[in-house]
Amino acid sequence: MYYFRPSHERGQARFGWLDSKHTFSFGHYYDPKHMGFSALRVINDDTVKAGAGFDTHGHRDMEIISYILEGAIEHRDSEGNHFVVPAGEVQIMSAGTGITHSEFNHSKTKKLKFLQIWIQPNQRGIQPVYEQRTINQTSMLTPLVTPSGRDNSLKIHQDTSLYRLQIEPGEILQLDTLQRPGYLHIIDGDIIIKNNRQLSAGDGLGIFKEIIRLKAATDGATALWFDLPVV
């Protein structure tokens, strides 16, 4: 099974200070054909103007991941956390019983780009938890978020693992989704998959009961790979 989500078909929201592309239905953008994939509910590709950001708002019973691509986020929440999360770092917030937070572009002169990711938890009503970390690339697949927090990854309350994928021309990466679905979101560069289909930045591909081979078409092709539960 393939679920292909081209970058140019994503929903979009523009508010002057924010340009957001929505892989799945979110906010004012609704499409019943794109409500998520397995436990993955949101991938928003957000660009925030200098000094602007999301005012204080609330969440509950959701695992919320921020992957910073450019610039830095300034995060404040009702648990007393106040941190700056720079490009290259990963942040996770388990909203649990309820948490309010704000997220602003830390810079007054430069834009902020980040991916906002929501994953539905397998535990409800937990105490809210916040973590952030720099995780260096150690192989073609580097774990960023896992259920156990293994290998220096951040811990998530779901049977889901999120990896940063990086391949160079000449390398081949095989991904097995025979037992569990997976979702690929391209960050940068071009990646070639089955039947010479080329995926580029912003494209997404959900896969289940398949084995696929990935090849890089450009130097330093990077993506996020979600290993997801059967739901």
Rank of each mutant, 00 (worst) to 15 (best):
Y2P: 01
Y3N: 11
F4G: 01
P6N: 11
S7F: 03
S7V: 01
S7D: 06
E9Y: 01
Q12K: 15
F15C: 01
G16R: 11
D19M: 03
T23Q: 03
S25R: 06
S25P: 02
G27H: 08
H28D: 15
Y29V: 11
Y29L: 04
D31Q: 07
H34V: 02
F37K: 13
S38A: 15
L40T: 12
D46L: 09
T47H: 14
V48S: 06
G51L: 08
A52E: 07
D55A: 13
T56C: 01
T56N: 07
H59P: 09
M62K: 00
E63P: 05
E63M: 10
I68K: 03
L69D: 05
E70K: 15
E70Y: 06
G71I: 11
A72T: 03
E74L: 05
H75F: 02
H75T: 05
H75P: 03
R76G: 05
D77A: 02
S78F: 08
E79N: 14
E79V: 12
H82L: 05
H82M: 04
H82N: 06
V84E: 08
V90M: 09
Q91W: 05
Q91E: 13
I92A: 08
M93A: 13
A95F: 05
T97Q: 15
I99A: 13
I99L: 14
I99T: 14
H101D: 03
S102R: 01
E103F: 03
H106V: 02
L112W: 02
K113N: 14
K113S: 13
K113P: 02
F114N: 01
R124Y: 14
Q127S: 14
P128Q: 14
Y130A: 02
R133Y: 06
S139K: 09
L141Y: 09
T146N: 11
N152I: 07
N152T: 13
N152P: 02
S153T: 11
S153D: 10
I156Q: 00
H157F: 15
T160L: 10
T160I: 14
E168S: 05
E168I: 01
P169Y: 07
I172C: 05
R180P: 00
Y183L: 13
Y183E: 11
L184P: 13
D188F: 01
D190S: 09
I193Q: 10
N196G: 08
N196T: 11
G202E: 03
G204A: 06
L205K: 08
F208S: 10
E210M: 04
E210R: 06
I211S: 10
I211W: 04
I212Q: 04
L214V: 14
T218D: 04
D219V: 13
W225Y: 14
D227R: 06
L228R: 00
